[in-house]
Nucleic acid binder design. Structure first.
Length: 552
RNA sequence: GGCCCGUUGGUCAAGCGGUUAAGACGGCGGCCUCUCACGCCGCAAACAUGGGUUCGAUUCCCGUACGGGUCACCA
């Protein structure tokens, strides 16, 4: 068989050789040890936590190395899955979470010397390599119909034979030049398959950047490398692209591990050096219905979508922090030791990534967010709330915009210092947390303390407003509350009450609860004196008066 | 089903032949305290399982169970 002739017959239009391409895409001139990574999504329009998870990994691995590059490549060899406008959407979402690329696809084109970065525009490049393989007898045109393949599959499954097109089932594998010519003359368009010489009895080992050494049997399948639409399959495209773009480290989901033998084989057949592969895990959750651990699902789990977090108003930094804690095992400790340090200074190591399925933990996310927000200034929080409400909550936005000065003071309560409050989590929750400052959102959310009779409540409020003086400092103010408590038969100190519960109706805490609920609608709040300072006399008096009405 | 990967407290996880088996989140109890939050102290809670190898296994090897992935002209 004259493979050279077969190659010409199949690809008369292809004149370039791999050597030509080597010249166009020469090895990068980068510092020793620089890592080149890539994010390679399909433009399906759905951007999820897994994407961010992977992007963060790629970005960190690249940028942790001197002169490293992280690029964006669009894997659109399957037109069926493509969604209009998916790329700008993706870029925007990633940028929101602080991830940008050095090279590759952009919202309106692309940048870099190793393009095109969109696979559908690289058709000619892939063909050069397919032609080379054909000319060496390592790939061949295949004319089997879908029906034929389906039949073979059925036969194989019925007989307990490993399914697929390989060996004797690869009917076009050993076609003569004449047979190929004949099919071509009939107007049949072939696809191209790799001619596998793999031996399933033979195992090879490879060092995975995350998992360490893994061993697998060689691939035997004559996988499709060029499809009917003239575009390559993922297997072939990734090999060609990652080589030509001079990628050094590939991090991808563990769903790719099973096809690793194909990829290794392809690199080998092409005479190319494979990059370091790292296979990470999928994000899991416990299914509410079954109680079973399972992969986060696009259909069932809204929390998989990045939009979910944007909409609730999670700070991007918080989400990123959380992802980092589950991405690299020693991140959390590093963060505790370096609370103020830039994420970029963390020594990210692929080998420190987990290789068992990670449960997504909203609880932990919230906790991480609290820490992140505790380090923000009131101004930063306000600005974020402003943008968030502008986009998602127009009604709340109106109040947020109108009462900027007040909100800045509210967000500043117990902020800064050694022990800042940590009760702010995400924008939606924050608004809820402070909404009693707005008359339009104020309501009585907590029951009045049982220790205080309605008459006492009325009396407490009357005495309170009588003695209320905004000029009092915190301790003078609370001294008056104690006095009211004492006057009405409540203990001035909770401990006294605990010692002699029969001597009192309750203690000063119950009395201040009445005042607190009157002013905030809640039994729990930050320091009441501070709240009143922010609200101002007029609002305090109005709230007390309204509460008094409750006891008429 | 074949092949592959994985398995330390409820969750995230240190550990890489000899440890009282870290730490974080959550839970519980306490201190502080007018409430909440913060902070501090403490408690409960784990090496899936059976065989080896070894003076000694959470750590190395094999089997089993369980979980996950994958078997497309989808990525």
């Amino acid at each position: 068989m004259d493979y050279q002739k077969l190659a010409e017959l199949c690809f008369p239009e292809v004149t370039q050789t791999p050597e030509d391409l080597e010249k166009i895409y020469p090895p990068r001139q980068l510092p020793e040890g620089a890592r080149v990574t890539r994010m390679a999504p399909s433009p399906t329009g759905f951007i999820h936590l897994g994407n961010l998870f992977g992007a963060l990994t790629d970005e960190r691995i690249a940028h942790r190395s001197e002169g490293g590059i992280c690029l964006l490549r669009i894997e659109d060899t399957d037109e069926k899955r493509e969604v209009e406008g998916a790329i700008p959407l993706l870029l925007e979402a990633l940028a929101y979470f602080g991830i940008t690329f050095d090279e590759g696809a952009t919202a309106d084109g692309e940048t870099g010397n190793y393009g095109p970065y969109t696979q559908s525009h690289r058709g000619d490049i892939y063909k050069v390599y397919v032609k080379k393989l054909v000319s060496e007898g390592k790939a061949y045109p295949c004319f089997m119909s879908e029906d034929e393949i389906a039949e073979i599959r059925q036969y194989q499954t019925e007989h307990g034979i490993n399914p697929g097109i390989y060996g004797e089932y690869a009917r076009c594998r050993d076609f003569t030049l004449e047979q190929v010519e004949e099919h071509l003359k009939n107007g049949e368009k072939p696809i191209f398959r790799f001619r596998s010489e793999g031996d399933p009895e033979k195992y090879f080992t490879i060092v995975d950047g995350i998992r360490g050494e893994i061993s697998m049997p060689e691939n035997v399948q004559d996988v499709v490398i060029l499809k009917k639409n003239d575009l390559p399959t993922y297997h072939f495209a990734h090999v060609v692209d990652d080589h030509l773009m001079r990628i050094t480290h590939i991090v991808r989901g563990e769903e790719w591990m099973a096809s690793l033998p194909i990829h290794v084989q392809l690199f080998d057949a092409l005479g190319l050096e494979p990059p370091v592969f790292g296979h990470n895990t999928v994000l899991m959750k416990t299914d509410e219905a079954t109680g079973q651990k399972r992969k986060l699902s696009k259909r069932k789990d809204p929390e998989l979508s990045l939009e979910f977090y944007k909409k609730l108003g999670y700070f991007p930094e918080g989400v990123r922090e959380y992802l980092m804690t589950i991405l690299n095992s020693d991140y959390e400790e590093w963060r505790m030791a370096n609370p103020e340090a830039d994420l970029k200074d963390f020594d990210f190591q692929p080998s420190k990534m987990s290789s068992s399925g990670t449960m997504f933990d909203l609880n932990k996310l919230n906790d991480v967010c609290k820490d992140v927000l505790a380090r923000k200034t009131a101004e930063e929080i306000y600005d974020f709330m402003y943008e968030w409400s502008l986009q998602y909550e127009p009604e709340k936005h109106a109040v947020i915009e109108a009462d900027k000065d007040m909100l800045l003071k509210v967000f500043d309560i117990d902020r800064g210092g050694e022990k800042p409050r940590k009760d702010l989590v995400y924008a939606g929750q924050i608004f809820d947390f402070v909404k009693y400052f707005f008359d339009g959102y104020f309501e009585y959310e907590s029951p009045w303390p049982a220790e205080c009779s309605p008459e006492d409540c009325r009396e407490i409020l009357r005495l309170y407003i009588e003695g209320y003086d905004p000029a009092d400092d915190n301790s003078a103010w609370f001294g008056k509350v104690r006095a009211i408590a004492s006057q009405l038969g409540y203990a001035e100190k909770p401990k006294e009450y605990k010692k002699n519960p029969d001597m009192y109706k309750g203690h000063v805490g119950h009395v201040s609860s009445v005042i607190r609920i009157a002013i905030t609608g809640r039994a729990n709040s930050p320091d009441l004196w501070t709240i009143q300072q922010i609200m101002g006399r007029e609002m305090v008096e109005r709230r007390i008066a309204a509460a008094t009405e409750q006891f008429k």
